[in-house]
Each structure stands twice: as C-alpha cells, then as structure tokens.
Simulated assay, not measured.
Amino acid sequence: MSEIKQLDVSIMGREFRLACPAEEEPALLQAVQMLDEKMHEIRAGGKVVGLEKIAIMAALNIAHELLHVRVGSGDFDIGTIQRKIHSMNETIDAALQEQRALF
C-alpha cells in the first residue's frame, strides 16, 4: 500500500490541504497549477465574477479540453469522462463548502 501524503496547495490565493498517494504527488501538483492558471485566466477576462463561478468555468474549460483531446485521438470513453467530471464537481463542492463555513 502506498503512503498517503498531505499537501498544502494554493488555488486563487486560497489554501487547501489535499491527500494523495506519494507517487501521484507530481501529477496532483501539476493539476493544481493548471487549475490555478485557468482560474486566473478566467478572472483576468473580466466576464465572470465570483470564485465559485470562476471554478465552475475553469472545470468546464478543462473538461472540454480533455474531451477534445480524447475525441481527436479516437480514445473516447464518455463513461470515464462523466465519472471524472462528477469527481471534479464533488471536489469543487467540498472545497466551496469549506470556504462557506469560514464566512
């Protein structure tokens, strides 16, 4: 069984503690960086206001990019994509719930 690490990360200036298997740490940190960059890009566009809406738009953009890559490669599995999107939504909901408790 692999070791589970606790990582402190920052997304849009907010701190989150995440757990992941040690061997997946580099991929998780890359995902955090990608999400943070996408969210900053959306906020800089000025058309979307509010952290929750920015997070949802970022998730949709990333999911769209993933679908585009999968469809283009011929390796498209809608069930897998739907499970990943559902998992992403649950993660976003949990993070937002924690933030709401602070205010």
Score class of each variant (00 low, 15 high):
M1H: 10
S2W: 02
S2P: 11
E3D: 15
K5E: 14
K5H: 12
Q6C: 11
L7V: 08
D8H: 12
V9A: 06
V9F: 03
S10P: 04
I11C: 05
I11K: 01
G13S: 06
R14T: 13
R14A: 09
E15H: 11
F16V: 06
F16C: 05
R17H: 11
A19T: 08
A19Y: 00
A19H: 01
C20W: 00
P21T: 09
P21N: 09
A22Q: 10
A22H: 04
A22P: 03
E23F: 05
E24A: 15
E24C: 13
P26T: 15
L28P: 04
A31T: 14
A31H: 05
A31E: 06
V32D: 05
V32W: 02
Q33M: 10
Q33V: 13
Q33I: 08
M34P: 04
M34W: 04
L35G: 08
D36G: 08
D36S: 07
E37I: 04
E37W: 04
E37S: 11
K38S: 09
K38F: 02
M39L: 02
H40V: 08
E41T: 09
I42H: 01
A44V: 02
A44M: 00
G46K: 04
K47G: 04
V48M: 04
V48I: 14
V49F: 05
V49M: 06
V49W: 00
L51P: 03
E52Q: 13
E52A: 15
K53H: 13
K53W: 04
A55L: 03
I56K: 06
M57G: 03
L60N: 15
N61P: 05
N61K: 03
N61L: 03
I62T: 01
H64I: 09
E65Y: 00
E65H: 00
E65C: 03
L66W: 00
L67H: 05
L67D: 10
V69K: 12
V69P: 00
R70Y: 00
R70N: 00
V71Y: 07
V71T: 08
G72D: 10
S73T: 08
G74D: 07
G74I: 02
D75Y: 02
D75R: 12
D75S: 12
F76G: 07
F76N: 09
D77V: 10
D77T: 08
D77R: 11
I78P: 03
T80N: 11
T80D: 11
T80P: 02
T80R: 11
Q82N: 15
R83M: 08
R83L: 10
R83K: 13
R83H: 14
K84Y: 11
K84L: 15
K84F: 13
H86G: 12
S87C: 09
S87T: 14
S87N: 13
M88Q: 07
M88W: 02
M88E: 01
M88D: 01
N89S: 12
N89H: 09
N89P: 01
E90C: 05
T91I: 12
T91P: 00
T91L: 07
T91D: 03
I92S: 06
I92V: 14
I92P: 02
D93K: 15
D93G: 15
A94L: 08
A94T: 12
A94C: 08
A95D: 06
A95L: 06
Q97N: 09
Q99M: 13
Q99E: 11
Q99T: 12
R100L: 09
R100K: 15
L102C: 15
L102V: 15
